[in-house]
């Protein structure tokens, strides 16, 4: 291969500006979507364990719908189809909004990831031995106190790796939102490539950005797991 690399090109304007905008968008989108997905996922996961049949049905339906349609299709549905279903006035207001692609991406990513997190929560709580519930009830703790003091603190520690891995997934999935016009890292790389024909540099820089960010998340979560480890049980070091 006869190719002259031109790395400093990335630091020139407007390329550098696109890189910064891309990184900022990716991080902002992933963090916000993860936050929403965590709250919604805990809620859906909890109602899937509920005693009420109706609530369980709602939870299961949610999970099966959002987990089983490809994310890319979901993003297109939110971006192209959803506004058409709105009443005319609302649709016009929606289209006039600034940053429609970003909000659409946020909705799509959050709802998709919430379904996955709900499943993690459900399996995390199901993994707690039944005897822990019996022991807590036998000492007179109520159901709410049992969850608050025994089951959730225990399950949370079991679930840290899964929740961390969901963040890495949402972070990488955010690249798909370039298809609906979000100027995130991959979008920035595509723009730079289009203007400069320097695809190798642009996509290398994008890859490096993803890897550096995910690596720091992995390190942080490893630290958290270690800090909250249960002595003698999990997270031995």
């Amino acid at each position: 291969m006869n190719y002259e690399f031109d790395w400093p090109l990335l630091l020139e304007e407007p390329n550098w500006g696109w890189v910064i905008e891309g990184v900022a968008n990716t991080i902002q989108l992933s963090l916000m979507a993860w936050g929403f997905a965590l709250v919604l996922g805990v809620l859906i996961g909890a109602i899937r364990m509920s005693k009420s049949r109706l609530l369980r049905f709602i939870g299961t339906t949610y999970v099966e719908i959002f987990r089983n349609i490809p994310l890319l299709v979901q993003l297109f549905l939110w971006f192209f189809v959803f506004p058409l279903l709105l009443p005319d006035d609302l649709m016009r207001a929606w289209n006039r909004l600034d940053g429609v692609p970003f909000f659409t991406a946020l909705i799509g990513l959050s709802l998709f990831t919430a379904a996955r997190i709900a499943e993690q929560i459900r399996s995390g709580i199901s993994s707690i031995p039944k005897g822990q519930f019996l022991a807590a009830y036998s000492t007179g703790l109520t159901e709410v106190q049992t969850f608050r003091h025994v089951i959730i603190p225990y399950a949370f520690r079991v679930m840290i790796p899964a929740i961390a891995s969901e963040f890495l997934t949402i972070f990488k999935n955010s690249a798909l939102t370039l298809t609906i016009g979000v100027a995130e890292v991959t979008g920035a790389a595509k723009t730079i490539e289009a203007y400069t024909f320097r695809g190798i540099e642009a996509y290398s820089a994008a890859s490096l950005t993803y890897m550096l960010t995910t690596a720091s998340v992995v390190i942080f979560m490893g630290w958290l797991e270690h800090a909250l480890r249960i002595p003698g049980l999990i997270g031995k070091r």
Partner: peptide
Amino acid sequence: SKIRSNIGMVFQHFELYPH
């Protein structure tokens, strides 16, 4: 719950809270 607090129970597999 109040009644249970007057009855202590010990289990085969201890069921101490590991955390």
